[in-house]
Design a protein around this nucleic acid. Structure first.
Lengths: 344, 344
DNA sequence: GTTTAGGATGTAACCGTTTTCAGAAGGGTG
DNA sequence: CACCCTTCTGAAAACGGTTACATCCTAAAC
């Protein structure tokens, strides 16, 4: 006849407990709070775990403890060096403090982002890392209703009542534009990234424009082109700008990929950079300094930014008081792609 | 006096059930198998879900159903265009079939990879996507012990008893080398990626070498350099090769980043490509066709490869019979960076 | 010697689902 | 009208952990 043996012990923590001759509570403690169990027991349990090949079942743990030691992140796309970098840093940091990262992508679609957030919250993440502050209203409500800690990364908005970490894109873009203005340029074009659902892109455009306005320069509408994040589109934009009767002598770009496209097309069209055209990028990707001419650009410490986002959440979850708005420094890196306009 | 109300209903599926005046079983069914519940009930439940703002709790669901509709993936690094591309495709496909992806990175460390696998299995993933077939022995055992379906992606090994999907890197590399040989080159150098723990890199080297051997060419040891995945290192390697008294007239590279580095350095050192030096890349990154000279390289459909890996696992999990070894085509893309050796 | 404090361990309820099983309701047949 | 199928629904037992609480034990304090 069978013993009743309510929950037998063919697997899981109960199997370990049985083998070590202890209760499941002790096994759990040995795992989560080793100091709470005597060294001898701890050793016996460790051995049992090894023998059984026990792998803790995270879902059960999450269900029971209501904490997952997992953060969620939603980025527009992973197929963009800047985001890949950031995610890599974040992930590295998180794993160093025993956290995991659940990554999803939204494709710059606010509805998808909301859906992904729902997904991640349902998954039991302890906090959420979001790109920028351009979100669906439902997302804000969702976060509030479920009391999910989160942080906006890649932007700096000290006036908002929720946390963020990033560079001040507007100011950085302003700096970039001022650079060419200071060099003597008066005819300045803009090739920006798509601004729709992308506050980083629009902040940069805003910064560019402010620099122009402040210095009394005008921006004919045909001198501002918006393009997707590809070399082909950037080249097409450059071809267009350079074909204008009345063309700019300098172009400030929304990112380095665009700037590279402009560089390529300028050369292709017989313009010499920086002699006939100055070009400024934004992001300082790895290869930007290798280009010929090497690219003048804004350096943004992406890895640091994302890591800090992780730090903020982890600290908050640990109950520590943390600064809510963290500004990450940018810097203008002047290289060969900018010079005073010829004829000056 | 309080009602006993065993498990009250302040949240979760019970709250929904209470509000709709049905049992939790019905709510669960309405969610997972809508056809099993009458339309009227379904509507009532849907409304209750909406009203309560119910988000299903995935961990509980996984715990109970023993399936997570989640796949795990372990890549060496996310900070490499090829992997980012692949992961993006995989993720896109998976989300289109209602699966999620849990992504982790190993940093080319087999121990870390094993640990991550343990992590993911503990997380309850239904299957695992692994890069290549270079794994820790413990990992194979782990997969077998826990009966976790998996697939090796990015390589093609039809002789192995477990699934894989990818291009035949050895053959592709052979093709690349044959290209310059057919152009008339006899002095061919190799700048490969680091081969340690990277079977893709070593397969490519093997292919290069086989082409040389088969055509009776020799490879002086100083003509083969291994470098990390950075432009700086590639340039340094190129500088070295080009400084040799007895230097090669063509260089086949382990990937496009390396090839780009070689291109840059050749130009810097006053060599003209392809006149003085032919360069072949591998991967066909986005910008490779934009370079000047544009890069002759091997095109690898990364997105397709990773998507197929997902398809394989999803189909297997659905009980469908699927082909175990899937070869993904590569193609040689001849551009401007290769030409017959000068003086021929 | 008795009391007490405190640490180590065990017991068992509970976390939020799914799912088996059984019961109820409804609709054809003979 | 009794019977048997279907189809729909509900009750309750898992799933594999954590943790509040109870218990036991030892050592220090009186």
């Amino acid at each position: 006849m069978d013993l009743p043996a309510a929950r037998s012990a063919k697997q899981g923590i109960r199997a370990v407990a049985a083998r070590a001759g202890v209760s499941t509570a002790s096994v759990s403690r040995a795992l989560n709070n080793p100091d709470a169990v005597s060294p001898s027991l701890r050793a016996r349990i460790a051995q049992a775990i090894e023998a059984v090949g026990y792998i803790p079942h995270a879902p059960a743990r999450i269900l029971s403890s209501r904490r997952s030691r997992t953060l969620g992140a939603i980025v527009p796309t992973i197929d963009n060096t800047m985001f890949a970098r950031g995610i890599a840093s974040l992930q590295k940091y998180l794993s160093s403090v025993g956290y995991m990262l659940f990554l999803t992508t939204s494709g710059y679609d606010l509805d998808v982002e909301l859906q992904q957030a729902r997904n991640l919250i349902g998954r039991g993440v302890d906090g959420l890392v979001l790109r920028g502050d351009c979100h669906h209203d439902g997302l804000r409500k969702l976060l509030a209703d479920n009391a999910v800690p989160f942080i906006n990364v890649g932007i700096y908005q000290p006036d908002r009542p929720y946390p963020c970490v990033g560079t001040n894109n507007e100011a950085a873009a302003h700096r970039a534009a001022m650079h060419v203005i200071e060099l003597g340029h008066r005819r300045i074009g803009i090739v920006s990234a798509l601004q729709r659902n992308n506050d980083r892109a629009s902040a940069r455009v805003a910064g560019f424009r402010r620099a122009l306005t402040e210095t009394g320069l005008t921006l004919p509408s045909q001198w501002h082109v918006e393009v997707p994040y590809t070399l082909d589109d950037a080249r097409e934009a450059a071809r267009y700008l350079l074909s204008l009767e009345d063309r700019p002598t300098a172009v400030v770009c929304g990112n380095d990929v665009i700037a590279y496209g402009v560089l390529l097309e300028a050369e292709r069209s017989g313009f010499s950079v920086p002699r006939d055209l100055s070009v400024v990028g934004f992001d300082d990707l790895d290869w930007s300094r290798h280009l010929r001419p090497s690219l003048t650009t804004i350096h943004v410490p992406t890895g640091e930014t994302w890591q800090r986002a992780g730090e903020y959440l982890v600290r908050s979850l640990a109950g520590e008081q943390t600064i809510m708005h963290h500004e990450v420094d940018y810097s203008l890196v002047v290289r060969e792609s900018t010079a005073p306009p010829s004829g000056t």
